[in-house]
Design a protein around this nucleic acid. Structure first.
Lengths: 146, 146
DNA sequence: GTAGTTGCAAAAAATTTGCCCTCCA
DNA sequence: TGGAGGGCAAATTTTTTGCAACTAC
């Protein structure tokens, strides 16, 4: 399943005339292999352990490239630090206001809900997604004990 | 209606022991009186015309203060620059991927939809909101003509 | 070979902080 | 009048860019 993702990734690269560099592959693999919607800094820190020469600007540059080619998503949050994910299938997010942890969720009933007609006057709607925010179990416990 | 907002604002300040300074009032009024979900920079630029001595850090500081006291919202977006609004009633947003314009929308059917039970295991959900993104009419036209 | 990419360093953009003076409660 | 808040400048944080060297195609 991960391999499928990666071979799709390689194909898309060829189609677009982008070069498949080691760095790009590693950045994508890091995203595809994690569930925590990492920041650029986090990806950088992780990759440095196995690829000590990679630079932070390469991570930023490629997150931007991958995003603009629709290969990764930038998560819609209320934070200023960008968070990314390789999961492109429609889904939604739960965000903890304290620890900023992001959890993927699916919400079938919402997905089946058609937006009101008049939204179409606005223009061309490409994505609809729900952001739920609050305080996660772990942070609730921490609050009580402190 | 704006006056109600502002008097609520003043009351909340008293209750919390926060001081009602000219700057805070102007920042709040700028937000309450605009529909475009401005950034800190935009508010600063606007206020400078009538209050030339206000500083950008005061704007930032107070947006943070107002937000942490629940008097304003930070809009959930996929941008890194923070956008704010004084509209605290539950509503949703349409965001243009090109010009970044944010439009308020209401979506009754969604508001009536209860989140799946199992989301509650996650913790305490405080807000649920929809972000629709795409390309607005104006940007669609610009694309065609270019 | 050569255009697209990288790493380095520096710059830019966005936001926060320390310090001292001011002004609101 | 005491202390929260403002303005200034400097620092941090997050992200972008210019450029020479490098490498995938």
């Amino acid at each position: 399943m991960q391999e499928t993702l990666i071979s799709d990734f390689e194909k898309t690269f060829q189609q677009r005339g982008l070069r498949l560099t080691q760095q790009r592959l590693e950045i994508f693999k890091a995203l595809a292999g994690s569930k925590d919607h990492p920041t650029a800094e986090k990806i950088y820190a992780q990759l440095r352990t196995t690829m000590p020469t990679i630079s932070l600007d390469t991570v930023y540059r490629n997150l931007h490239t991958l995003h603009s080619h629709g290969l990764i998503n930038r998560v819609v949050t209320g934070q200023s630090q960008a968070r990314f994910e390789a999961n492109l299938s429609p889904h939604h997010h739960l965000i903890c206001k304290i620890c900023q942890k992001i959890t993927d969720i699916s919400w079938q009933d919402f997905d089946n809900l058609a937006p009101p007609q008049d939204f179409n006057q606005w223009g061309d709607i490409k994505e609809k997604q729900v952001t739920l925010s609050g305080i996660c179990k772990t942070c609730l416990k921490d609050k009580k004990s402190s």
